[in-house]
Simulated scan of single mutants.
Amino acid sequence: MRNIQQLFIYATISIILSACKSDTKEETKEIKIAKTEIKGDCPKYILDNKKNNLNISVFLDLSDRITQPKTIQKDTEYLKSVSKAFTSHVKTKKLIFLQDQMQLYFNPEPTNDAINAIAEKLHIEFDKNSPKAKITETEELYAGQPAEIYNLALADAKNPKDFPGSDIWQFFKYNVKDYTISNCHRNILVILTDGYMYHENSQIKEGNLSSYLTPKSLHRLPLSNSKWETTLNEKGYGFIKANENLEDLEVLVIGVESLNPKNPYAIDVMRAYWTNWFNEMGIQKFKIQNADLASSVEKVIEGFVNP
């Protein structure tokens, strides 16, 4: 009888200890989950849908490139295509999941208040309370207002020498994280530029690296023959790294064209400069598109925004 009682006691103790171990495992598991929980400044159902929430920023290069009428014509068509890709995406979403936005940037900020007022109009946000009419309104705004920006910029600087340049390098160094990256969205930056980079107040050089690339500076480099890539890599030519940890940003550069007629490899060199620069800053998805017919580039834009 005593042996049976002892066995009963042992069995009871074993059950209790087993239950305690199980509770400990469950508690540990819960603590681990709590530590890895993702936090954001938007509702959880929006954060969970992050990759389907578009945050498109467009950077306009308002340097002397816009003194060419064909550049303005192409840029305005490219902008129409970007807004069309944006609204096409919005149309596919359920109303409750709408959390999408699109905006326009320059650097430096134009001194003309009228340009800034237009840029403010082109800051579009969609949420669950947005009316359907806003889709059409967005397309109309981006079809008409950008041309006015170029006209105003040209009126302010009628001579190409009056253009100080567009500071893309400084924008990446000081503004890109604050202006174009949201932890609740898929972040896309579209840059309309000719591929060169220059501003009179941002001319930094460190060895064979620089914060700028102009037709004149490119002409001085030994990169005009078929061995340009080997020379570029061996000499370390390129842009100075402006930022880091930009993994949450996708970049589409549109409008690259050569202003170096004596260098048949100029576009290849520019593409290498941009590619290496993006890689060094941690940007994982990007595309560098040459200036081309608007109808051709529209397909590129649509494929990038809505893959």
Rank of each mutant, 00 (worst) to 15 (best):
K39Q: 13
K39S: 14
G40W: 05
D41L: 10
C42Y: 14
Y45K: 08
Y45L: 03
I46Y: 11
L47G: 10
L47S: 07
L47Y: 09
K50P: 03
K50G: 02
K51A: 13
K51C: 00
N52C: 02
N52Q: 14
N52I: 00
N53A: 08
L54I: 11
L54Y: 09
N55A: 09
I56Q: 04
I56S: 01
V58C: 10
D61C: 03
L62A: 11
S63I: 05
S63N: 07
D64L: 06
D64V: 11
R65S: 14
R65V: 15
I66F: 11
Q68H: 12
Q68E: 15
P69M: 00
P69K: 05
K70T: 14
K70I: 12
I72W: 05
K74F: 13
T76P: 02
E77N: 13
E77R: 11
Y78L: 05
L79N: 07
S81I: 01
S81F: 05
V82R: 05
V82N: 07
T87R: 00
S88K: 09
S88H: 09
H89D: 06
V90F: 02
K91M: 09
K91C: 00
K94F: 09
L95K: 15
L95N: 14
L95C: 05
F97E: 09
F97L: 15
L98N: 12
L98H: 13
L98Y: 10
Q99P: 02
Q99C: 08
Q101E: 14
Q101K: 15
L104E: 04
L104V: 15
E109I: 12
P110Q: 07
P110T: 08
T111F: 08
N112A: 05
D113H: 03
D113G: 00
A114Y: 12
I115K: 04
A117R: 01
A119H: 11
K121E: 14
N129R: 14
S130I: 08
S130Y: 08
S130E: 06
S130Q: 04
P131N: 02
K132D: 02
K132Q: 07
A133C: 00
T136S: 09
T136C: 01
E137M: 03
E137V: 00
E137Q: 13
T138P: 05
E139I: 04
E140D: 14
L141C: 00
A143P: 00
G144K: 15
G144S: 14
G144V: 00
G144C: 01
Q145I: 07
P146E: 06
E148S: 11
E148H: 07
Y150H: 08
Y150C: 00
L152T: 03
A153D: 09
L154Y: 10
L154K: 15
A155W: 02
D156K: 03
D156E: 15
A157E: 11
A157K: 15
K158L: 12
K158I: 10
N159T: 15
P160A: 08
P160C: 05
P160W: 09
G165Y: 06
G165A: 06
G165H: 06
D167H: 09
D167Q: 03
D167I: 04
W169V: 03
Q170G: 13
F171S: 10
F172T: 09
K173E: 15
Y174T: 08
D178C: 03
T180P: 06
S182Q: 12
N183A: 03
